[in-house]
Amino acid sequence: MLPLEGLKVLDLTRLIPGGYATLILADLGAEVLKIEDMELGDYSRWIEPTIGGNGVYFHALNRNKKSMKLNLKTEEGKEIFKELVEKGYDTIVEGFRPGVMDRLGIGYNALRNINPKVIYCAISGFGQDGPKKHKALHDLNCLGVTGVLSITGEASPAIPGIQIADTSSALFSVISILTAYVARGKTNQGQFIDVSMTDGLISLLSIHLIKYIVDSTMPVGGKMDFNGKFPCYRVYETKDERYMTLAALEKKFWENFCIAIGRRDLIDKQYDDSMKTGKELENIFKSKTRIEWEEISENIDSCLEPVLNFKEVTKHPHLKSRNLFFDIDNQNLKVPQVRFPFLMSDVNNTPRNPAPLWGEHTDEILISIGYDEKEIESLKKRGVIG
């Protein structure tokens, strides 16, 4: 038995924030039902390349879920949604702008009147209140307005390689949903959860923002304690134009590194932010290839690791030994997947069901809550379901 078996989730989201959150819940045993519109559905389905009718982005975020096509613009569609909530799908995850679900008549207050146990998680860019609550924004905008981009890159702001606001808001959503789930076990009541992507980034920035509030020193990309100021914590180019990461913050790690390269004279330069010392380290790293530096790394305890590309990552023996990569069978095709990001001693066999086709489970779900085939066919003809 998986730990979240019995938890039933209605997922009205698209793309990363809600998709990644409900993926983790589904991997741990929750029944996640995607409620998709009739026109496009979750549009990550259609982003190339595709495997078996779904885009690879969609496959990455939607294994172990079900899909229902439901027209929430119709009164009958709204009634079906309410019926799902009444009959046990009592955890809602949505990513609309504040007020959209209320205008449809299926917001938190309306659903709570139907089922007091409803846990309702609303993910948005700026949160449910404040002067900018209705503004549209994506991950990059969040990175901009929270100051993350102002300290990322050197000559100009650099776009990070992953969607930090999207993925962190997904994880905060999981934490808050499970917290509400535990609380519900004590109170028998659900609650509303307001997950703001910008709030999440401000939280992640707390050590930097609090330092600024205290000393009024404006941080600059490439010149902060943990993004390039000190020679012991930098990315260095190698002789073959590859890169190594050195993160020898502790004295013992820096000493081990200096001794290994035969430069004991640098031991006292760990936190010397002068251009001279920085240039000296750059020249040292450019004297060897990345492979040579990796060989040195294997023989010392010094927080020295290479910058790998995706081909190297997917073939890395340690990462493979952790079973991070696996395949799901889908219509006689192999769909590559990445497992959920932690291991638990009593969770051994997580489900491996392929991402659903658009509306694949509509009939199944309606039958489970009491509709017969004639009623279902009638709903389809009237454009209520698909």
Rank of each mutant, 00 (worst) to 15 (best):
F226M: 12
F226C: 03
N227F: 13
N227L: 11
F230M: 03
C232Q: 01
C232I: 05
Y233N: 00
V235M: 13
Y236M: 12
K239Q: 04
E241I: 11
E241W: 09
R242A: 09
R242E: 12
Y243C: 07
Y243E: 01
Y243I: 06
T245C: 09
T245A: 02
L246E: 04
L246G: 06
L246C: 11
A248M: 11
L249F: 14
E250V: 09
E250S: 08
K251E: 11
K252F: 12
F253N: 04
W254E: 10
W254F: 15
N256Q: 06
N256R: 03
F257N: 05
F257C: 04
C258P: 03
C258H: 00
C258N: 00
G262A: 08
G262L: 10
G262K: 00
R263G: 11
R264T: 12
R264W: 01
D265Q: 08
L266V: 12
K269Y: 15
Y271N: 14
D273E: 15
D273I: 14
M275S: 14
K276P: 03
T277N: 07
G278A: 11
K279H: 15
L281W: 07
N283C: 11
I284D: 00
K286E: 08
K286L: 11
K286S: 07
K286G: 03
S287W: 12
S287V: 06
K288A: 05
K288I: 03
T289Q: 01
T289G: 06
T289L: 01
I291M: 07
E292Y: 13
W293S: 00
E294A: 01
E295A: 13
E295H: 13
I296S: 02
I300Q: 02
S302H: 00
L304V: 07
L304H: 05
L304D: 02
E305G: 07
E305K: 07
E305R: 01
L308Q: 00
F310W: 09
K311Q: 11
V313F: 15
V313G: 14
T314Q: 08
P317G: 01
H318G: 09
L319T: 08
L319Y: 05
K320M: 13
S321N: 14
R322G: 05
N323H: 15
L324C: 10
L324I: 10
L324T: 00
F325P: 04
F326S: 06
N332M: 15
L333R: 11
V335Y: 02
V335D: 06
P336F: 07
P336N: 02
Q337W: 03
Q337K: 06
V338E: 03
R339A: 07
P341R: 02
S345G: 02
S345I: 01
N348C: 10
N348H: 11
N348L: 14
N349W: 09
